[in-house]
Nucleic acid binder design. Structure first.
Lengths: 187, 187
DNA sequence: CCGAATGTTCAGTATATACTGAACTATCGA
DNA sequence: TCGATAGTTCAGTATATACTGAACATTCGG
């Protein structure tokens, strides 16, 4: 591995640990991300200096996250892996998976808590706090879901607009009304 | 601890691990979040069944994340901790801290990589991938930064709008023009 | 200034997680 | 059908992280 690639791989190994992903998984992914041609388990183990079994498990983990694609080369029995196409695809895959694994169970737990009718004042307060959290989490969850449906171009546009979006928000109702009146495009 | 509180605390202990936060830290925070009145180290250790030293370290960690506030009660030498006010505050604090600890170093590493002029084609490809990542990360980073400046109310409004924001985006330029013409509010 | 109460630090230990190497399974080509 | 190659699984081990309990530091009231 060249120093350039090395530093990226090492960094993502480190970052992985902070995100609850283990170092090898992070490094395998980082290397696949940077490398144009798909790599097989042998090459990955070799480059990263870890065992084949470790690579095998890491690849399974990455498949669970839908972050790598398995490709086969004609006339070669080995399995070649490559990372998803664009950074957008990666972002979406990670967001989707995190939601499934972390957000959904949390929402479900919070929902469950709302079904109780505690007599104890402390419990009542706790329940209110959970409700507060539930409402925001639910809202954010739905929002992310919707944003994911937007094209990357629209998202980029939205992000570039930044906080100026507030102007549109403030004027939203009138805006839509004006436009509707103007030429009938909006409804 | 009541069963209601227990289940929440246990859940966040678990979730903490997945987020690179250790179980005790997650549990201490969860308990503070649910409890109306501030708690001292003794009470936390007692409720969670862990040692005082463990609580002490966990509280320091939470202070590092700016997630808890230290309050003192008149005529009591003990330090009482409480969680930040609203879920929004928490969200902001976590986002800000994650950016500082994880996003910034990553951006800096990626920026560094752009300064090289590698001869090797593999390195050139790697560099292009890193550039791709850098651009998106930079954009998303800036966006988050701007969103944080919006009031919770505006954010809620934006989230509720969901993907319908796209309509506003598509029409953005004309929208602003029409409004400007209409009454001179937008610029 | 002393003793009790509170908070911090740290060495040692427990626990959890990652990783290896070897055994095993599956599949292909000859 | 056999040997070689690829992939998987798993028991054992290494490593990292969390946690405890005791020693230490600090602060307060008397």
């Amino acid at each position: 591995m060249s120093p350039l690639i090395q530093s990226f791989v090492a960094h993502f190994g480190e970052m992985g640990s902070r995100w609850g992903i283990n170092r090898t998984v992070g490094q395998v992914y980082a290397l696949l991300f940077l490398t144009e041609r798909p790599l097989n388990a042998e090459e990955l183990a070799e480059s990263l200096g870890v065992s084949r079994s470790n690579v095998s498990i890491s690849l399974k983990e990455l498949e669970g996250w839908q972050l790598v694609r398995l490709t086969r080369q004609p006339g070669d029995r080995r399995e070649y892996y490559s990372s998803l196409g664009s950074v957008w695809d990666i972002f979406r895959a990670v967001a989707a998976e995190r939601r499934r694994r972390e957000v959904e169970p949390t929402l479900s737990m919070l929902r469950q808590a709302q079904l109780e009718s505690p007599a104890d004042p402390a419990d009542r307060h706790a329940q209110r706090r959970m409700e507060e959290m539930y409402e925001l989490a639910e809202l954010a969850n739905g929002w992310f879901d919707e944003l994911q449906r937007l094209s990357p171009e629209s998202l980029v546009q939205l992000m570039k607009l930044g906080s100026k979006v507030q102007k549109l928000l403030v004027l939203k109702d009138r805006t839509l009304a004006v436009l509707a009146q103007g030429d009938g495009v909006a409804r």
